[in-house]
Amino acid sequence: MSRNDHGEYTAGTTDEDILAHFSQAERPFQTAQSVAEQFDVDRSQAYRRLQQLVDEGVLEKAKVGGRAVVWWVSDEKESTGTVRDVNPDDPLFDRDTFQAGEPCDTSEKIDEVLYGNGTSRSV
């Protein structure tokens, strides 16, 4: 964090920086403390920025016990394609579903399921 010509602190982290952190971090949810550590700011400042993003509909938050709060990118934001674009016509969504413990058909290879018969792609 830096100071301007008047000695006031200026924000060096943009909303885009914060959203990029959510998409690049090892988990899709963060705490104010983890964001504060990532951007080298005070936890209360990170909390205010995260709350501002909640107010704008970009993030959502939930209290998970005691005073702990987690934040994540709003589903509404994801559905706009800003964070992640999902094709609802993808044939993967037409596949039969199953629950843990139920038998499933393992005769198809994962590439066939994901990319169609006869197509193989490297990850």
Rank of each mutant, 00 (worst) to 15 (best):
104 C>R: 14
57 G>V: 00
7 G>Y: 12
108 E>F: 11
103 P>M: 15
7 G>W: 04
118 G>K: 13
97 T>G: 15
39 F>A: 03
41 V>F: 06
99 Q>S: 14
60 E>F: 05
79 S>Q: 13
110 I>Q: 03
50 L>R: 00
84 R>C: 05
97 T>E: 14
106 T>R: 12
114 L>D: 07
98 F>V: 08
27 R>S: 02
93 F>M: 13
16 E>Q: 10
87 N>E: 14
16 E>C: 09
108 E>W: 10
118 G>M: 08
64 V>G: 06
114 L>G: 07
87 N>P: 04
27 R>Y: 02
87 N>M: 11
74 S>E: 06
36 A>C: 03
114 L>W: 12
105 D>C: 11
54 V>W: 01
39 F>N: 12
79 S>G: 08
98 F>E: 08
1 M>G: 14
69 V>P: 05
9 Y>A: 10
24 Q>G: 04
17 D>S: 09
100 A>V: 13
15 D>E: 14
43 R>H: 07
71 W>Y: 15
110 I>P: 04
25 A>T: 05
104 C>S: 12
121 R>C: 11
33 Q>V: 03
24 Q>T: 05
31 T>V: 00
55 D>H: 08
58 V>S: 01
67 R>F: 09
50 L>M: 05
81 G>H: 09
59 L>V: 00
18 I>C: 02
33 Q>T: 07
74 S>W: 09
